[in-house]
Design a protein around this nucleic acid. Structure first.
Lengths: 134, 134
DNA sequence: TTCAGTATCTTGACCCATTCCAGAAAGTGG
DNA sequence: CCACTTTCTGGAATGGGTCAAGATACTGAA
């Protein structure tokens, strides 16, 4: 249960958490739609708040590639990365190329205390690269 | 000159390009303000269009960390990365930790044809980490 | 089980970055 | 210098995301 994170267990939160687990990399609209299949009455506001709360609690992760709306995923704590298709926006997961979490060490941290490294690979997904009728 | 990229040389574009060079990591509003110090009459639309055109031509790069507005920088082609402060949003540059462009190779490309790897280090800038009165 | 207290949800309006549109203006090549 | 084409101006629209106030539901304890 998500009660372990010190959060209240409410119907919308359970539904949101389930939706994120069921649809990785889903945008907010999709999550709202998925949640409303279970609870047709939930407001978008509750979904936004739930997502923020779950993100703050570390149960879901928010990602937002440039030019895209916010998306959420349930894989957390395994510092994996993402491959984004420039054409269709599809997002795929990729394990860290280096290992556990060595990507955290930048060559020059400029005095910053870094706690996370986010890697996004840009390219074309298999479908779009074959259908590239440019 | 930016004429080498096959672009028409217009007053707004020159000003936009200069503004991006003068203010790295500036958001769109700042760029509009900087441009208007030279050309008070430019419309925001011209700035947006110029930025898109320059981005497409590869003269500037657009970056947009999660939860931030679009920002532009003039360092292109040296695949450096960014360190973003979670608190104040400051962005600093960091050279690639590995070398030229080996970051391009993901451990598993899932069939994608990857052409760019974008790395964002998240943390606290020196100012915010000392002032963290949480 | 019931109660009080507090966090959370609903409803609706609002903000602001970005985009779209049509007409006017400016840059380019001849 | 001219005509053509791209670009810019000005204004309005789009839409993701947030803010605010009141109603509701969850939690812990009696």
């Amino acid at each position: 249960m998500l009660r372990g994170a010190g959060l209240r267990v409410t119907r919308p939160r359970v539904a949101v958490l389930g939706a994120v687990h069921a649809h990785p990399h889903a945008d907010t609209d999709s999550i709202i739609g998925a949640v409303r299949r279970d609870l047709p009455k939930v407001s978008h506001q509750a979904v936004y708040d739930s997502l923020h709360t779950l993100t703050a609690a570390g149960l879901v992760r928010r990602i937002q590639p440039s030019g895209s709306v916010a998306r959420y995923e349930s894989r957390v704590g395994d510092n994996h990365h993402h491959i984004v298709c420039r054409s269709c926006g599809t997002i795929a997961d990729a394990d860290c190329a280096v290992g556990e979490a060595p990507c955290l060490t930048a060559s020059d941290d400029r005095g910053f205390s870094i706690d996370e490294a986010e890697v996004i690979y840009w390219g074309l997904c298999p479908d779009c690269s074959t259908t590239q009728s440019s």
